[in-house]
Computed example of a mutant assay.
Amino acid sequence: MIKVKRVYDAPESDDGVRILIDRLWPRGVKKDLVDIWMKDIAPSDELRKWFNHEPEKWEEFKHKYMEELRSNPKVKVLIEVIRRSENVTFLYATKSPYNNAVVLKEYIESLLTK
């Protein structure tokens, strides 16, 4: 099972492996609250800055980020972590519901069901 939640939310017993998937380390977060930091799976700086969590850019952001993921070798690493774990939680920092964690979960789940 893959969950998505803010890194600032309290850890729960069913989080499993907690993976931070943001390029930048979030302010005030202790390193022991994150099991793995996969900053290289996050959207490129260019895409992240362009999107800026603007809802009207959401669909185009999803498309562009999935394009980046298709050529990102870290996707294979992430899939291996997921296959070895009962539960995985993708952590993100933004308050916006429009974020890369949602897209990454959708993308990874589509690969796992093939």
Rank of each mutant, 00 (worst) to 15 (best):
M1W: 00
M1R: 06
M1L: 05
M1Q: 09
K5R: 13
Y8C: 06
D9R: 04
D9N: 04
D9E: 11
E12W: 05
E12A: 12
S13M: 01
D14N: 15
D15C: 13
D15Q: 03
D15S: 11
D15Y: 00
D15A: 06
V17Y: 10
V17C: 11
R18V: 04
R18T: 07
I19N: 02
I19S: 00
I19G: 00
I21D: 05
I21Q: 01
R27H: 10
R27W: 05
V29M: 07
V29E: 10
K30A: 12
K30D: 14
D32G: 02
D32N: 09
L33R: 11
L33Y: 02
V34E: 07
I36L: 14
I36Y: 08
W37P: 01
W37T: 09
M38N: 00
K39D: 08
D40A: 00
I41P: 10
I41A: 04
I41R: 12
I41Q: 05
S44R: 06
E46I: 07
E46K: 14
E46P: 03
L47E: 10
K49H: 11
W50K: 05
F51T: 01
F51S: 00
F51K: 00
F51E: 01
N52Y: 01
E54V: 00
P55W: 02
E56F: 04
K57C: 11
K57G: 02
K57E: 05
K57Q: 05
E59V: 06
E60P: 00
F61N: 08
K62M: 06
K62R: 14
H63G: 06
H63K: 13
K64D: 00
M66D: 02
M66Y: 02
M66S: 05
M66F: 01
E67K: 14
S71H: 10
S71A: 14
S71M: 11
N72T: 13
N72P: 15
N72H: 15
K74I: 15
V77R: 12
V77F: 13
V77Y: 09
V77T: 12
I79N: 03
E80F: 00
V81E: 07
R83W: 02
R83I: 04
R84V: 02
S85E: 07
S85K: 03
S85N: 12
E86H: 03
E86C: 06
E86R: 03
N87M: 01
V88H: 04
V88P: 04
T89I: 14
L91H: 05
L91T: 09
A93Q: 12
A93S: 10
S96T: 11
P97Q: 08
P97D: 06
N99A: 13
N99T: 09
N100M: 07
N100K: 11
N100C: 10
N100D: 08
N100W: 02
A101G: 15
V103H: 08
L104W: 12
L104G: 09
L104I: 11
L104K: 04
K105D: 15
I108G: 09
S110P: 06
L112V: 08
T113Q: 14
T113F: 10
T113K: 11
K114T: 04
